[in-house]
Design a protein around this nucleic acid. Structure first.
Length: 136
DNA sequence: GCCAACGTTGGC
DNA sequence: GCCAACGTTGGC
């Protein structure tokens, strides 16, 4: 099993909306490295959801519910999209500032490759983020 | 709102 | 195949 983090702008597609809709086709990613990560997702992989730009914080957990398939309507055949289902909102959002200050999270692409929108997360990093979200 | 970093496009 | 020009992302 692998862990992931995906970014979304809450003004475009928020985690709250994902919770309401239960699951969503995660389409519109137009970056090859991110696309490659999408293709590596397996059903059941946990996915952290991050709100970029406005909030800059990890807000919730999802799970891959369908592996990436070619995007419907994409004539180039280049782009793939999985389906991600909502699991739960974090007790407390984990901010980008907290991630950047945490010694265990320095290797997260979020810290140094801020533009990558779909990234792998190690199990240790995942557990650390969940731990932070449970601090009051 | 600004701008640095990055990715893509297209002329040569 | 190189690289300048351009467009976009996302932190600040």
């Amino acid at each position: 099993m692998n862990y992931w983090l995906v970014k979304t702008e809450k003004e475009t597609y928020s985690f709250q909306r994902l919770m309401k809709e239960r699951e969503s086709l995660w389409d519109g990613v137009r970056n090859y490295q991110a696309r490659n990560n999408l293709k590596l997702m397996s059903v059941g992989d946990p996915v952290l959801i991050y709100h970029s730009v406005s909030d800059r914080e990890i807000v919730g957990v999802g799970v891959v519910s369908k592996e990436a398939l070619p995007e419907p309507g994409d004539e180039t055949g280049r782009w793939f999209a999985p389906v991600i289902a909502a699991v739960k909102e974090l007790n407390r959002p984990v901010t980008l500032a907290e991630v950047k200050m945490n010694d265990n999270l320095q290797d997260l692409p979020l810290v140094k490759h801020s533009r990558l929108s779909v990234m792998p997360v190690s199990e240790m990093e995942y557990q650390e983020i969940i731990r932070l979200s449970e601090l009051s």
